[in-house]
Design a protein around this nucleic acid. Sequence first.
DNA 1: ATCCCGAGGG
DNA 2: CCCTCTGGAT
Length: 218
Amino acid sequence: MNKKNREILAILEETYPDARCELNHESPLQLLVATILSAQSTDKKVNEVTAKLFQEYATLEDFLTITPEILESHIKVIGLYKTKGQNLLKLFPLLKERHHGEVPRTMEELVALPGVGRKTANVVLSNAFDVPAIAVDTHVFRVSNRLGIVKETTVEKTEESLMKALDKKVWTKAHHLLIFHGRRLCMARAPKCGECPVNELCTYYAGEKKSLKKPKRS
DNA sequence: ATCCCGAGGG
DNA sequence: CCCTCTGGAT
């Protein structure tokens, strides 16, 4: 890990000492459900939904009894609710039948589950099972590319390059720091570069502020 | 009109 | 590579 990236992370750590997973959960399963629901939604909205949902449906045994109508009524306000609902209804019996009722702990098994891609898998691996991982969501993609920690055009390559650029022991922490920074200062629309504590280390601030293109799908 | 801790199908 | 799914906030 080079000096500049070390400095960036050190400053971000000072700025966001409470950086952590902000999806409320009390088990790996609840985190998996919350993360699936979080696609194209805000964690704030997801937490509102799961607060009520997990009150009645907390364990896998509980979720195995939920009806499509009840599930939909809970998650409707989140967006993308049909696919998310269908994926979850397929997911619960799969966990029971193929995974002994447990959330699997490997990338390969996780991404094989309906509605689970690399981003969701990495969130679960790092936050529920303490496996070093960098989940590249919209914030991590935008912030890491603006700062110049990586220069990539897809989330997959961004994850790959971030793992090379950063020491493994800081992967999960760096993921949270980049997300917090993306929420508080380095927002998509009007980033607060004037207030940014790492602007002197930032290629986006140094450059012409040429707008960062959205990630290409791959 | 744009963005939010994306994934799957064509 | 592309498109669609989706409501809510700004």
